[in-house]
Simulated assay, not measured.
Amino acid sequence: MNILLVAATQPEIQPLLDYFGDEKPFDVLITGVGMVATAFALGNHFAQNKYDLVINLGIAGSFDRSLVLGEVVEVEEDILSELGAEDGNGFLTIEDLGFGESRFRPIGTMLFLPVKKVRGITVNTVHGDENSIRKITKRLQPQLESMEGAAFFYACKNSMVPSVQIRSVSNYVEKRSRENWKIGLAVKNLNDFAIGLLKKLSLLRCHLDHGGNFHST
């Protein structure tokens, strides 16, 4: 089982890299921040490499106050929330315009992760204004926001690669207040969870190498 880990920045997964050291049972791709960098890096990488599973790891802001800071979640739907056109006070999605799609989901991993499943949006500008937060909440009811998630799903879908997006909540989406953020906790919890998952997948790969069948993890 060939596995690729994808992150926007190396600090988000540094504890995991330190844990596995030179014996990493996976490849790593650091894309850079944002959907453009993510889509380009993945498209280029997929043109030269084949994988059985691609895992996107990162931290994110939460609109949903029922999610605890530091909580690890799986994004089961991600939306390019800005892709479309303004129409007075309204918004026309790319689907409304007939030019494409803005909603993406993971494809065929057969993984069943013991975490909450959430709906995310992917943005170029993270929200920090009460009016814009109110508008996007009314329009899409997102639980999480990142700057890469939907682009990750888009690249995996078009390359037909099984994918999963795992994120940890570093802050609530509100007027920018870094003193309330829990980045260290989010990174720790994300990496602890990912290390456990990758150890299980490594055992599964050994099982498959000895003629076993892949059911689930």
Rank of each mutant, 00 (worst) to 15 (best):
L4M: 06
L5I: 13
V6G: 04
A7Y: 00
A8D: 02
Q10L: 11
P11M: 01
P11G: 01
E12S: 00
Q14R: 09
P15M: 02
Y19Q: 03
E23W: 10
K24H: 05
D27C: 08
D27R: 05
I30A: 05
G32F: 08
G34Y: 06
M35Y: 15
V36K: 02
A39F: 13
A41V: 14
A41I: 13
Y51P: 08
Y51D: 07
L53C: 02
V54T: 10
I55A: 04
L57G: 01
G58S: 06
G58L: 07
F63T: 08
F63K: 02
D64Q: 09
D64K: 07
L69V: 09
G70R: 04
V72H: 01
V73Q: 00
V75H: 01
D78I: 01
L80V: 05
S81I: 02
E82I: 04
A85G: 02
A85H: 09
L92G: 09
I94T: 10
I94S: 03
E95A: 11
E95M: 12
D96T: 08
D96E: 08
F99P: 06
F99M: 12
G100W: 07
E101V: 15
S102N: 03
R105N: 12
R105D: 04
P106F: 05
G108S: 07
T109S: 15
L111C: 07
P114I: 00
V115E: 07
V115T: 12
K116L: 11
G120S: 01
V126N: 04
V126H: 06
H127G: 04
D129V: 13
D129I: 09
E130G: 15
N131I: 15
I136Y: 05
I136G: 03
T137Y: 11
R139F: 13
Q141T: 15
E145D: 05
S146E: 02
S146Q: 00
M147Y: 00
G149Q: 03
A150V: 06
A150Y: 01
F152K: 09
A155I: 14
C156T: 11
V161K: 09
S163P: 04
V169P: 04
S170E: 09
N171Q: 06
N171T: 10
Y172W: 08
Y172E: 04
S177W: 14
E179N: 15
W181K: 01
W181C: 07
I183R: 11
A186V: 04
N189L: 05
N189H: 12
N189V: 07
N191V: 02
G196F: 01
L197S: 04
L197Y: 05
L198D: 05
R205D: 10
C206P: 08
L208A: 06
L208W: 04
D209M: 12
H210I: 12
G212A: 11
F214D: 07
S216W: 11
S216R: 12
S216T: 14
T217F: 15
T217C: 13
